[in-house]
Every structure is written in structure tokens, then in C-alpha cells.
């Protein structure tokens, strides 16, 4: 019971991170109908920026944790969103209206490029940082097992909930959100109505990168280590989450993220930690087989 509760907490934390990344996939898929394979690497870039920023702050002698967190979040979001913009501008925009396969291959190329760029400029070794947030709450104790909720887990869940509410508000209420949804439905018509479609797509990529950046910072705080390969695995899992929840649907992405996080945590605790990735991918294949539109997605109608 205590173990289950602990895994519930761990799974929710992990799921929140996957959900944040998954939204980037889902938004991009919704608007231009392509899988942005480089999205996981955007998240990895953000984690590296966070490591550099935390190290710089420590060198500057800033010890206040909330201040450091706020500064790192700001810096990381700023630079990572520029990365999101640049990725779209260089690798995807020239290919709009090309064959279906071309942007996918270009995205794979971008993912390989980003991974190796980080490996070359930042080194291939694992980067550890000293713990930023230490301590937590002991919720209760049973059978000699203490259920622990660390501050960083609280931080991840709170930030995710806040961001999600803000995001939902932005998409459903603001004029940008309306323009974004209009682009999703019919890009040509939206363009005819005087909306700068390219700008909306760029902003969508930047927003996706922003969420990935927050996820990158949170993970850096949570685990304390990053390496250039984290984007690959996190990217696949977040994509699985997006598909599970129904690609194109934002609440779906969050739900899928949480589900994947929970499955992974419970699988690792009760079955076998080595095969948790296998479990995730098998779920992806099963979902695609039996419910291709995902849990909250609408079935796709193909038009000529």
C-alpha cells in the first residue's frame, strides 16, 4: 500500500513532465500535421541550458532557491524558444507543401543534428549539478516504509498544473488561441481572413519549446543529471503519451503523459525495471491497433 502510494507520486511527477513535452508534439501535429521528431531534443537543449545557468548562479553566489529557479526558468525558456523558432524556420518551413515524407526526414535530420551539436559543444559526459531543492514531506509510514513527497516533486506538479491552466486559458480565450485553432482547422481560409499563418505556426513552435523548456528545467532539478541522449527517450515517450491521449488534443496529451508516467512507475516497481521502456512502447503499439484516434482524440477523416 505504502509502496503503491509512493509509486503513484513518482508516476504523477514523471507523467507531468511527459505531458508537458507531449503538448508540444500535439500542438505541432494539430497545426501542420507532422511529427516534430526534434522536439525531444529541444527539451534536452533546455536541460543543458538549465545546467549552465544553475552553475553560473552558484558561481555568482546566489543561494536563494526561489530566485535561482525563477531566473533559470526565465533564461531557459528564452533561449529554448529561440531554438524552437529556428528549428521550424530552417528545417520545416521551406518544406511546407512538399511531399509527406520530406518534413519527417528533415525532422530526423534536425534531431540528429541537435544531439550531436550538444555532444560536440557541451561534451558527451553526464553533467551532474548539486541538488537544488533538498528535503520534502514524509506523508506516512507503514510496514517500515516511508512515503516521501520531495519538494521537487511538489514543484513539478504545481508548475505543471499552473502552466496547463494558463495554457488552456490562452488557447480557448485569447485572440492568439482563436487564431491558432483557426489555423488548425483550415490554414488557407485563415490566411484569407488576414491572419499571418506563418507567424502563428512559428509561435506554436515557440510555445511548444517553452513547455519543453520548463520540462527540461524541472527534470534537471528533479534528477540532477543530464546528458545529450535524454531527449531521445523522453521524446519517444512523450510522443507515445500524445498518441495515447489522442494526437491533436491538448487535454489528451496531459492525460496520456500522466498515464504513461504511472504505467512506467508501477511497472518498474512491481514487474521489472529493465523492461519499463518495452512496456511503454508495447502500449503505444496496442493503442494504435485498437484505438488509433487515442483516448480523447477525434477519428481522422481523410479528404481528397
Amino acid at each position: 500500500m505504502a509502496l503503491a502510494l509512493q509509486q503513484l507520486i513518482n508516476g504523477l511527477t514523471l507523467g507531468a513532465v511527459y505531458g508537458l513535452i507531449a503538448i508540444g508534439y500535439t500542438m505541432v501535429y494539430g497545426i501542420i500535421g507532422m511529427i516534430n521528431f526534434a522536439h525531444g531534443d529541444i527539451y534536452m537543449v533546455s536541460a543543458f541550458i538549465a545546467v549552465t545557468a544553475f552553475t553560473l548562479l552558484a558561481a555568482a553566489g546566489i543561494t536563494s532557491v526561489p530566485l535561482a529557479l525563477a531566473v533559470v526558468l526565465f533564461v531557459s525558456v528564452l533561449f529554448t524558444s529561440v531554438y524552437g523558432w529556428a528549428v521550424e524556420r530552417t528545417a520545416y518551413r521551406p518544406l511546407r507543401g512538399s511531399t509527406r515524407l520530406a518534413p519527417l526526414i528533415s525532422a530526423i535530420g534536425m534531431s540528429i543534428f541537435l544531439q550531436n551539436m550538444v555532444q560536440l559543444t557541451q561534451g558527451a559526459r553526464v553533467k551532474p549539478i548539486p541538488p537544488v531543492l533538498v528535503g520534502g514531506f514524509d506523508i506516512f509510514e507503514a510496514d517500515g516504509f516511508t512515503v516521501h513527497l520531495s519538494y521537487s516533486q511538489v514543484l513539478i506538479i504545481v508548475v505543471t498544473v499552473l502552466l496547463m491552466s494558463g495554457f488552456t486559458w490562452m488557447i480557448s480565450r485569447t485572440s492568439f488561441g482563436r487564431q491558432q485553432r483557426a489555423c488548425e482547422q483550415d490554414m488557407t481560409m485563415t490566411g484569407l481572413l488576414g491572419i499571418h499563418v506563418d507567424r502563428i505556426i512559428s509561435l506554436t513552435f515557440m510555445l511548444g519549446a517553452t513547455l519543453a523548456a520548463v520540462a527540461g528545467v524541472l527534470v534537471t532539478v528533479y534528477y540532477g543529471v543530464v546528458d545529450f541522449y535524454i531527449g531521445f527517450v523522453a521524446g519517444i515517450k512523450a510522443f507515445t503519451a500524445a498518441v495515447l491521449g489522442g494526437i491533436g488534443s491538448m487535454p489528451g496529451a496531459m492525460l496520456g503523459g500522466v498515464l504513461i508516467g504511472l504505467i512506467e512507475a508501477f511497472w518498474a516497481a512491481y514487474l521489472s525495471p529493465e523492461y519499463k521502456d518495452v512496456a511503454t512502447f508495447s502500449i503505444l503499439i496496442l493503442v494504435l491497433m485498437f484505438r488509433p484516434s487515442g483516448l480523447l482524440g477525434r477519428p481522422e477523416v481523410e479528404k481528397v
Binding site: F37, R100, L101, I236, F239, E274, L284, I285, L286
Partner: peptide, 25 residues
């Protein structure tokens, strides 16, 4: 068989996942 009945893009991610499954196993 399960992934090809769907939109083409899904195949990319399923094969990516399958490659990882094989390696992990």
C-alpha cells in the same frame, strides 16, 4: 501489421520504438 493500417507517420514512431524494444531486450 498493426501500424501500417494507420496514417503513414505513425509507422515512423512505432518502428523507432520497436528498434528500442529489440535493443532493450
Amino acid at each position: 501489421w498493426p501500424s501500417l493500417r494507420l496514417r503513414g507517420d505513425y509507422l515512423a514512431i512505432v518502428t523507432l520504438g520497436f528498434g528500442e524494444i529489440i535493443r532493450v531486450v
